[in-house]
Structure formats: C-alpha cells, structure tokens
C-alpha cells in the first residue's frame, strides 16, 4: 500500500506523544501542543488526528483505569509505533535537508 502523506498536524501530534513518553494521553497531548505551538487546539481536531494516526499504524493506545476527577472515565494513553518512528525520522530528514543552508536567508527576511 502506498504511503499516504503525513500532515503537519499529525506530525506535531506524533512529536508531542514522543515528548510526553508515558504521560501521553488526550489532555497532556493538547497541553503540550498548545504550549509549544502557541495555538489553541480543539479536542475534536486532536481526536481526529489521533484516530488517523492509529488507523495508519503510527500510534498504538491502551486504556488506563478510570479516575474520579474525570467523572470515572478511563484515560487512553498513546505510544508511537516503530513504523511511526520511521515515518517521523523520514520526514525529519526530508525537512532537515530542505532546511539546510536556508537558515541565514530566513533570518534575514524574518528580522
């Protein structure tokens, strides 16, 4: 099956899950994304992104025990799969090579 492209937001989610390690579940992922990107992230967008990544086999998940501050609802923790890591590495490499040598140029424009 052909590889479908990895969207920017999906890319960000994968990185957030990676950064959070064992603590990666819906709330912390959104916090991480919001803190680092400065954007407001909706729950729905995150839900869709996580679902797509799972469908593509880039993420796995497991449910943890319910907790009272969540209205006795379980948490779903995420983990990046081996395939996910590969894809991330590929995109990172592609991006790095595209960025190479551009930095001073961009700084000049960005002020």
């Amino acid at each position: 099956m052909a590889r479908t492209a990895l969207g920017e937001f999906e890319h960000l989610i994968l990185l957030a899950v990676l950064r959070l390690g064992d603590e990666a579940y819906g709330v912390t992922i959104i916090d991480e994304l919001e803190n680092r990107t400065g954007r407001e992230i909706s729950q729905a967008a995150t839900y869709i992104g996580l679902k797509r990544l799972r469908d593509k086999g880039l993420l796995t998940s497991h449910l943890a025990d319910p907790s009272p501050e969540r209205g006795e609802r379980a948490r779903r923790y995420f983990e990046v799969t081996k395939f996910g890591l590969e894809r991330l590495r590929d995109s990172a490499n592609a991006l790095f090579s595209m960025w190479e040598g551009l930095d001073p140029e961009l700084r000049k424009h960005g002020g």
């Binding site: 579940y25 819906g26 959104i30 729950q43 319910p66 609802r73 379980a74 779903r76």
Partner: peptide, 8 residues
C-alpha cells in the same frame, strides 16, 4: 469513554 474523560 476516554474522549469524554479528556473533555471533562
């Protein structure tokens, strides 16, 4: 379950 939990 988990999505509503995150929202809550």
């Amino acid at each position: 379950e988990d999505t509503l939990g995150d929202l809550a």
